[in-house]
């Protein structure tokens, strides 16, 4: 499906009343994040990069994301989120074991590093983890589908949809303080909200989006 909001860029509102200094600082920091070094081995990092690309691809025609760096930072800080499935180790351990197991699974199935697989092959490996249908012995200490549901998906998806490029692509209003919204009923839109390309329904004026 094509990007429904190709002319909408949430970052264009950065200097408007929709953003405050606190938010500007937070998003600036996120966008300038670099992948921390020395946290993962080269193979683990290459595997994670591929997992990220398959599970959370960047939308076309949008500035690149720093999702990968955010996830590596989570691993580095061993961040907790207030609950941990009893079959899983802590964040950092779970990811390291999981990435090694994904690599082993790829080697076992396709005789190639996970990072070198084509998209279809990589997806097949990931699908087997999701379904719990794995062969590599590395999974013995890590239940694959629990790892997938409780660690891989929430971490990747939370970080990815913290990215302005993804906000723009989904037509999300993004930061909104001090200015919030005036027109909140359905088919009503403030001038500083995204306008969908195909849209015919939101009537009225102005017909474009402005900051």
């Amino acid at each position: 499906m094509a990007d429904p909001y190709p002319t909408y860029d949430v970052l264009a509102k950065r200097d408007s009343a929709s953003w405050d200094d606190t938010t500007r600082a937070v998003v600036d920091r996120r966008l300038s994040l670099k992948v921390p070094e020395g946290v993962l081995s080269d193979t683990q990092l290459a595997t994670l990069r591929m997992v990220k690309a398959r599970v959370c691809p960047d939308p076309e025609g949008r500035p690149p994301t720093t999702t990968l760096a955010m996830v590596v930072q989570r691993i580095e800080e061993d961040s907790t989120e207030g609950f941990r499935h009893h079959e899983l180790p802590r964040t950092s351990d779970a990811w390291r074991r999981g990435l090694d197991a994904i690599e082993a699974e790829a080697q076992l199935r396709f005789g190639s590093p996970f990072a070198d697989l084509d998209g279809g092959q990589a997806d097949a490996v990931l699908r087997s983890i999701e379904d719990g249908d794995v062969r590599a012995p590395e999974w013995e200490s890590l239940p694959p589908s629990t790892f997938w549901t409780w660690r891989v998906i929430p971490d990747l998806v939370s970080c990815h949809w913290s990215q302005p490029s993804l906000w723009s692509a989904m037509g999300f209003g993004g930061p909104a303080s001090p200015r919030g919204y005036v027109r909140i009923a359905e088919n009503r839109r403030d001038p500083w909200e995204a306008l969908e390309e195909r849209s015919t329904s939101p009537t009225g004026w102005p017909r474009h989006h402005v900051r």
Binding site: S18, W19, T23, T80, R84, H86, S162, G174
Partner: peptide, 17 residues
């Protein structure tokens, strides 16, 4: 901040099983 991720600082994120 107007940001879901940053505002994770408001939650009880300590380890719980």
């Amino acid at each position: 901040a107007s940001d879901e991720h940053e505002q994770g600082k408001l939650y009880w994120n300590d380890d719980r099983i």
